[in-house]
Design a protein around this nucleic acid. Structure first.
Lengths: 343, 343
DNA sequence: ATGAAAGCGCTAACAG
DNA sequence: CTGTTAGCGCTTTCAT
């Protein structure tokens, strides 16, 4: 059933029916009611492409997932984020268009999407320190919003981020307060913005207490379980082994915990571990790992907010960019114990 | 730059330019060459909505993710699957439209998508035993393909699945050959088709050797780490505890392993564990868990194949439905050890 | 308050 | 081989 058929069925013009359906004021209440019920009864929904062609809007938001670094997709927070974003999109009548792209084709893809006009805006995930995507999108005049921040960008743009440096500074202080002197940092790749900031917070806390930054107990790598395992095992076998670990991802922490167990050490007794991740979707039902979580309850909420920001931008292109910095909230679990000999 | 502008720029009609671009044979080679280079130089890409409106095709495939059971999104195989599907889509010029839906709104959503005509087909993931989606889509006349199978469906449809029952039968036999008599099954929710089939394979193998099916050492639940942990701990504390575990997901296996370690048992020595998952994306860099993997190398390949099947169906709607059953390949790792006292 | 008609950008008969 | 023309289904002036 299309608009023409519906209008013929009602004995009205397409115009009136369209206006009634879209809430224009110049339609009488009686006709509007008739139109709305008829539409419902006949299972009428406007054809998105026709509507888009007429309005110059695609009614879709693009999410581009880089595939060269598997990282993004596998990240357990990914699912929650797009679940939240999807809620906002659905409420506003937008679809979510997913595209997978090699890192080195990203610019071509953006240009193509802009030309094809099949998305009204793009949501950028996992920005690197000097992320080029921000510049490209600004260039293209394509509305966008970033989950995280791209430090290199100079002009204003829409973003939402967790306060990563503060979170790691507080986590480090927390461990220092417990008496730890050797705190290892097992970080993500530090060309990524979030990882860079996390390291900054860690170093700030150490420096503030006059402690040295020791590269021997700092690691940065793609966040896999294996990475957590090997780096922890490696550091534990060093002469001056760390007594605490600050871990940048819950996935990595699985490996960390395994290495600790294999070394015959007891979590929360011989050793302390704090894991930071934006969300805990993977372990939602397990409380054994202490966590920072964003105060806005979860990454899902972040997705919802950021998507709304992008929709607002699309709806009102002249409005200034918006950004939100969420504070992480410390949650302490059983495996965060005091430093050895300080029980 | 749109078609009109491009054609004016070239001094040709829109028709000729369109034909040249779309590879129609009745265009001279000279003109085609001219058109193609001009298109490239001017960064021309056809407007998807206009093209869709004219062709009656949306150039998009829908992936609907149920959100009531978080399960789907979090599942690590999810990412690989859509990565593979995305490749096929991109090659054929299709976009991927993602929608999140509550389980109980799925029919409404399907009807709406069919009416809006913003997807040409739907890819169904994670089918349950008596999945209604197959029937609804057949009803709507919407092309679709299923990753897995919906056992209840009587008419033919497109699907691709791993041979779950054979895989679990072989895994069970493998453990039986090692001398195990008490093999626990830690399965997914058994209203899901894959879990139902897996249990079938397990029971077949036991029955073939005249062993009893013991509900005491069988579990079925949402596949979380905690579930693996608690159910394993529970079963290990039973009087006649299992000496081997057959686990239905790599995530669950993390919990299983933790419970085993906590019980002071040694993997591959006191106890055996076999984990089945369609893919190993999460632990791609870790070899410590034995796995079945689909012979087609990975779920990514499955996504690629199934997407292509769907595209073929859309392109040629009269062709009969296609299905593929992939055999799992047994891969044995260090933690699959002999039964206790049989070294 | 309602309708007629133009047009969004493209494809696909139909002509030549 | 190339061009003219009529839609695809909707929104949106412009009339009435």
């Amino acid at each position: 059933m299309n608009l023409k058929q519906l209008s013929e069925h009602l004995g009205l013009s397409q115009t009136t029916v369209s206006r009634a359906l879209n809430g224009y004021p110049e339609v009488s209440d009686a006709t509007r009611k008739k139109v709305l019920t008829a539409a419902r009864l006949n299972n009428y929904s406007p054809n998105t492409r026709a509507k888009g062609l007429a309005t110059g809007r695609a009614w879709a938001i693009g999410h581009i997932i880089p595939i060269s670094t598997k990282h993004e997709m596998v990240n357990p927070i990914f699912g929650d984020f797009i679940a939240g974003a999807g809620e906002s999109y659905a409420a506003a009548g937008f679809d979510m268009t997913l595209r997978l792209a090699e890192d080195d084709h990203i610019e071509t893809l953006y240009r193509e999407m802009a030309a094809k006009r099949n998305v009204d805006g793009i949501l950028v995930q996992g920005p690197a320190m000097d992320d080029e995507r921000v510049h490209i999108l600004q260039d293209l005049g394509m509305p966008f919003a970033v989950h995280g921040r791209a430090s290199s960008a100079t002009t204003a743009y829409n973003w939402l981020d967790v306060n990563n440096s503060r979170a790691f500074e507080r986590a480090t202080n927390f461990l220092l307060d417990l008496g730890h002197q050797r705190i290892a940092l097992i970080n993500g790749l530090e060309h990524m913005d979030f990882a860079y900031r996390r390291r900054g917070g860690y170093e700030t806390a150490l420096s503030a207490r006059g402690l040295a930054i020791d590269p021997q107990i700092m690691r940065a790598h793609e966040m896999t379980e294996r990475y957590g395992y090997t780096s922890t095992r490696d550091m534990l076998s060093q002469p001056n082994a760390p007594t605490a670990f600050l871990v940048s991802s819950i996935i990595v922490a699985i490996g960390v915990r395994r290495a600790i167990e294999e070394a015959g050490l007891k979590m929360g007794q011989d050793i302390s571990v704090i894991t930071h991740d934006d969300d805990i979707s993977y372990f939602r039902n397990g409380e054994e790992i202490p966590l920072f979580t964003a105060t806005h309850s979860s990454v899902r909420e972040a997705g919802r907010i950021l998507a709304q920001i992008l929709i607002d931008q699309i709806t009102n292109p002249t409005a200034p960019p918006v950004h939100r910095l969420l504070e992480a909230q410390l949650m302490v679990g059983q495996s965060t114990g005091p430093a050895p000999g300080r029980t």
